[in-house]
């Protein structure tokens, strides 16, 4: 393969059907043991991987919308990098979901050929925080802070999962999410402790997201059942760690008055995890319309 000419490489005939990573699990000899743990219900494992995979996929898509529209060039690059990490995690998890389900669905069929009601992501990741009308970079950063703090705590617990694939994805993801959380935290501090305008917009962002926090910390029956066999973690157990991290950031960003409402939303917030049951806002349908357009218009397309 030649690296001298990017266009030549694009046109080159080769046996890789996709431009990015994700086919490794097709290899039956991979050192990651892909056999399903015997005590685990495969359908539950598939549903759980779908939840974590959809969270990452949908937020990756939302973050990618900022590409070329961030406040500075470095930020475009940073957001795109974070989105790419999440997309990589999503691909591994959706592949695992399809494999556990055993109905022949691949990462691509799961990402591109499901309707909104079949997605299992939490509502937090699908909210349209911009860059379009009604959006705000501050809300985007507050959401990224909350999500990456939650996911970091979640994957940290999953490092010891009895499902070897989840454990491997988690061990890798933890390293990436530490960088994501620091990045979002540094922005929230900078904005909260910045001008009156930036502080106000950050505060409005926190307020807007409060109703979506409780869902992250409410178990779905699949999570409870898999937690009992050491595969999953019950999200209620993540509350303390996430409250600690968010409180540190809010205090450093002169946003102390929001520590109590955020803590309350996490500990006693609305306990309906509608997203995990396939109930979503119209924002997800709009997001999917764009994300799935090409794959649905031309199901045979390869890129």
């Amino acid at each position: 393969m030649s690296f001298d000419n990017a266009y030549e490489a694009l046109a080159e005939e080769h046996d890789d059907q996709r431009w990015a990573f994700g086919t490794g699990f097709d290899d039956p000899h991979a050192r990651v043991d892909r056999a399903l743990p015997t005590e685990v219900d495969a359908a539950d494992l598939a549903r759980y991987c779908l939840m974590l995979g959809d969270d990452a996929l949908i937020l990756a898509q939302r973050l990618a919308e900022w590409c070329s529209r961030g406040p500075e060039l470095e930020e475009d690059v940073a957001i795109a990098n974070i989105a790419l990490d999440l997309l990589g995690q999503a691909r591994l998890l959706l592949t695992r979901a399809g494999e556990a389900e055993g109905a022949g669905r691949t990462e691509d069929t799961l990402a591109y050929l499901r309707d909104a009601a079949q997605f299992r992501n939490v509502g937090l990741v699908e909210i349209d925080c911009g860059p379009g009308p009604g959006g705000d970079f501050a809300v985007t950063m507050v959401r990224l802070l909350v999500f990456s703090s939650w996911r970091l705590a979640c994957l940290r617990s999953l490092i010891d999962s009895s499902d070897p694939v989840l454990a491997a994805v988690a061990a890798k993801g933890v390293k990436e999410l530490g960088y994501h959380r620091d990045h979002a935290a540094q922005w929230v501090v900078r904005l909260g402790d910045g001008t009156r305008e930036s502080a106000e917009r950050t505060a409005r962002g926190i307020e807007r997201l409060l109703p979506w926090l409780g869902e992250l910390f409410t178990s779905h029956p699949v999570e409870r059942s898999l937690a009992s066999v050491g595969v999953a973690v019950e999200p209620e157990r993540l509350r303390g760690e996430v409250v600690d991290a968010l409180s540190q950031v809010l205090a450093a960003g002169d946003l102390d008055e929001w520590i109590a409402p955020v803590t309350a939303a996490i500990e006693t917030g609305p306990i309906e995890n509608r997203g995990r049951w396939g109930e979503h806002t119209p924002a997800l349908t709009e997001l999917l319309a764009e994300m799935q357009e090409l794959a649905r218009a031309d199901p045979a397309a390869v890129w």
């Binding site: 393969m1 080769h14 890789d16 996709r18 431009w19 990015a20 990573f21 086919t23 490794g24 790419l84 990490d85 999440l86 997309l87 990589g88 995690q89 691909r91 591994l92 994805v169 890798k172 993801g173 990436e176």
Partner: peptide, 14 residues
């Protein structure tokens, strides 16, 4: 892979 989403992996394989 270096990172979960590293797009260079397919190039490395090829």
């Amino acid at each position: 892979p270096t990172y979960s989403g590293c797009p260079a992996l397919v190039e490395m394989r090829a």
